[in-house]
Nucleic acid binder design. Structure first.
Lengths: 204, 204
DNA sequence: GATGCTACCAAACAAGCGATTGCTATGGCA
DNA sequence: TGCCATAGCAATCGCTTGTTTGGTAGCATC
């Protein structure tokens, strides 16, 4: 803004020599895929660069370190989850049990069918990350979980039910699915419905 | 036993030059602690050997490879879980809901307060292990989970409840606790009671 | 037609890794 | 006394890691 004078439009420097902006995106995709498949430590800069036909050193033009690359991938992963439940809640009746079931189904399908970016976000993965980045990661995750806390607060649960334990129990059930899920047997919708049905006690 | 003839007791070769058998045990303890703290990849042979005042090469007298060491630690971890629930089930009334709650409490206290060995067993960890050892690990874990399958089979659940989904849901809730548990707020018993109460619908 | 920026190559760096080898001091047993 | 297994030291090998540095082809602008 405030360039004003004459036709001096220096701001967008075009940036399209050969591969343009999508080389960076290609690196992100490759990194997400390889992190998901072999873990952070198990993936080398050489692997990632090689996957897009680039030399290891060249990657440092786009990302200043391996951690920086990881962070970019992670953020994209969290974003997928947020978009998914935002969309699900947008088109669902406000009835509390229906709402949380829809959110769970969205969470599950992102986690299970959401591609490599989503897979990175799971704590099973985070464990393998360098400790320095954990605070940043947790901040992002907490923001996401807050959506679920709101949905749980709206549920007509008995007074004896600890809503915080309810949340961690539910999240555990959902995220654990990564360890056993295989395509074809159950759909994310089925799983979400079954889990919510088990937790929904007393009046049907 | 059955040494019999004369005083030829060659079988136990004494093995007590300087540190005896407990040097190997010390290595196991150190490995468990460091694997738990920094992951498999994050821990070097140098770290482990150094922690017990040994040079890296000397470790290879006790274990033939880093993977071998990992496997020994893992097995000890699974054993802890099996002992814990065996003991819990031994001193618990046969009433199905009480039984599974006791097993869950035992599982949780092993997972959360059971020390470094137990921590290794969690799939959050297994993810970082070299792929070659996974089949062995899964065999051990499956055997353990079968105890819970039996307990779940005995529960008076409605016909609409998928007992397999019940199992994975419960295991998810339990194992997820590793990500949020901090000593002092809830005890493993409290958590187990709360989780089971949530799942125990209909008749009180 | 010189300048400058983008996007990359080519080569190397220091550090750390798991593992191997040859050797040695110790102590029980014959 | 001689023998052999135990338990470890000392040194090193070959390899991979994340990262840095210097250079350069291609294009846009002045």
């Amino acid at each position: 803004m405030s360039v004003a004078t004459k036709t001096r439009i220096k701001e967008p420097p075009k940036a399209e020599a050969r591969g343009g902006e999508n080389r960076r995106e290609a690196l992100l995709d490759a990194a997400a895929a390889m992190f998901a498949a072999k873990g952070y430590d198990g993936t080398s800069i050489r692997d990632i660069a090689g996957a897009v036909g680039m030399l290891p050193g060249s990657l440092y033009y786009h990302f200043k370190s391996k951690e920086d690359l990881l962070l970019a991938v992670y953020r994209k992963g969290v974003a997928r989850f947020e978009e998914a439940i935002a969309e699900a809640l947008g088109q669902t009746p406000a009835e509390p049990w229906h709402a949380i079931e829809a959110a769970c189904a969205a969470h599950l399908s992102t986690l299970l069918d959401g591609g490599d970016y989503a897979r990175i976000v799971s704590p099973e993965f985070v464990r393998s990350f360098p400790p320095e980045v954990l605070p940043v990661l947790n901040t992002e995750r907490d923001r996401y979980e807050r959506h679920f806390e709101k949905l749980i607060a709206a549920l007509p649960l008995g007074a004896e039910t600890d809503r915080w334990l309810f949340k961690v129990s539910l999240f555990g059930s959902l995220n654990w699915s990564q360890t056993w899920y295989r395509k074809g047997h159950y759909t994310p919708r089925d799983i979400a419905a079954a889990f919510i049905a088990m937790l929904r006690n007393k009046e049907a």
